[in-house]
């Protein structure tokens, strides 16, 4: 059992506060992704869990044991670094066995574990090589094998795929998911790539300016963003926002159309994902400004009441600039945000 609890963790670098009062519980064997733009504090949080950084305040618990005062090696963790950190002066075998030898495991056990994890990561034929003789993808595999060989309670990954080319990233992503599910370890995975986050995570914590804005299952985050930031950050193309004026009784004026919404005092923002609108007879009047055929569908950028609005439409449509369309938002996919708090309003 290795549940991770992060309690009231804050971190300041001088006068700059990198993390504000973070509280997060990660269940045993859960795959948690910390997602956010660079500088949001996700790596700092990971390094605090690893013990490479000390929290200014707060506690870190792993498997029911408080660990924030312990050195990294006593926390039951292993880590995969962004630049792999595969030791250049050691062979692949020595790299994977590094932590095991530091633990002074018997040489036969070291050999057994190195060979097992190397086979798991499909690098068993590279054991005698140095890192200078490996490709980026192979180094990545060595870094993961080195972490898995420790048989840790928790595996921490800091943007492990960001240095790989697109095709390799896709392949490693799928492989990583399988290997980690099999290893039954709890995982924290830091990335700025939302597709990576969506595809890997059991749960995603979206971070922004040193705070966790929302922590939930990937689909829940996608469908029900808790804040405007999450709505705009997740999804490609991002969610559309339109100003909405109250007409009373839960009626809202959006781009000249009256739409049913929540009862709320003051103005709101109406939000809808580009793929959640259809061409229809009634709805938002839109003027086509840009048409981008993407094969499977058409990405159409329109002008709706003076605001740019993206719609994902069928690729069989023939549209040209200046065409006027009527876009019908799918009723159950409409979301509302309070511009004052930026939070979602149900």
């Amino acid at each position: 059992m290795a549940e991770i609890q992060i309690k009231n963790v804050a971190k300041a670098f001088g006068s700059y506060t990198a993390l504000h009062d973070i509280n997060l519980t990660i269940a045993d064997q859960e795959f948690m992704v910390l997602l956010g733009a660079s500088g949001c504090g996700k790596t700092t949080l990971l390094r605090i869990v690893a013990g490479l950084e000390t929290a200014t305040t707060g506690e870190v618990w792993i498997g029911g044991r408080r660990v924030d005062h312990l050195p990294p090696k006593d926390r039951g963790i292993a880590m995969v670094f962004q630049n792999y950190a595969v030791f250049p002066h050691l062979t692949v075998f020595e790299n994977i066995g590094f932590g095991l030898r530091m633990k002074k495991l018997p040489e036969a056990e070291v050999k057994r574990r190195v060979e097992r994890t190397a086979t798991l990561m499909h690098i068993e034929q590279l054991l005698g090589r140095y890192s200078g003789e490996l490709s980026g993808g192979q180094r990545q595999r060595v870094a993961v094998a080195r972490a898995l060989a420790m048989e840790p309670d928790v595996i921490l990954m800091d943007e492990p795929l960001s240095n790989l080319d697109a095709l390799l990233r896709l392949e490693m992503r799928a492989e990583l998911k399988g290997v980690l599910a099999e290893s039954k370890t709890t995982a924290i995975y830091v990335t700025h790539d939302q597709v990576e986050a969506m595809s890997l995570a059991d749960r995603i914590s979206v971070m922004h300016q040193g705070r966790i804005v929302q922590a939930d299952k990937p689909v829940a985050i996608y469908r029900n963003p808790a804040a405007e930031f999450v709505a705009g950050f997740i999804g490609n193309p991002p969610m559309n926002f339109l100003p909405a004026d109250p007409r009373g009784d839960g009626k809202w004026m959006v781009a000249g159309q009256v739409i049913d919404g929540p009862t709320h005092s003051g103005a709101l923002k109406f939000a809808i994902r580009p793929e959640d609108v259809k061409l229809g007879d009634h709805g938002l009047p839109a003027t086509v400004r840009l048409v981008e055929p993407l094969g499977a569908h058409l990405l159409v950028t329109c002008d709706v009441g003076g605001t740019l609005f993206r719609a994902v439409l069928d690729s069989d449509l023939s549209l040209k600039l200046g065409d006027t369309l009527t876009l019908t938002p799918q009723g159950d996919r409409q979301r509302w945000f309070d511009p004052a708090t930026t939070l979602a309003v149900a």
């Binding site: 690893a50 292993a78 962004q82 932590g99 420790m150």
Partner: peptide, 29 residues
């Protein structure tokens, strides 16, 4: 010598002295 090597060595259980012997010295050759 990139800082990441020292952090990796630390995470994988090397003491400061071991880090000197196993990371600094060989990479300083």
């Amino acid at each position: 010598i990139p800082k990441e090597y020292y952090e990796a060595a630390e995470v994988f259980g090397a003491s400061p002295w071991q880090r000197f012997l196993r990371i600094t010295l060989p990479l300083l050759r």
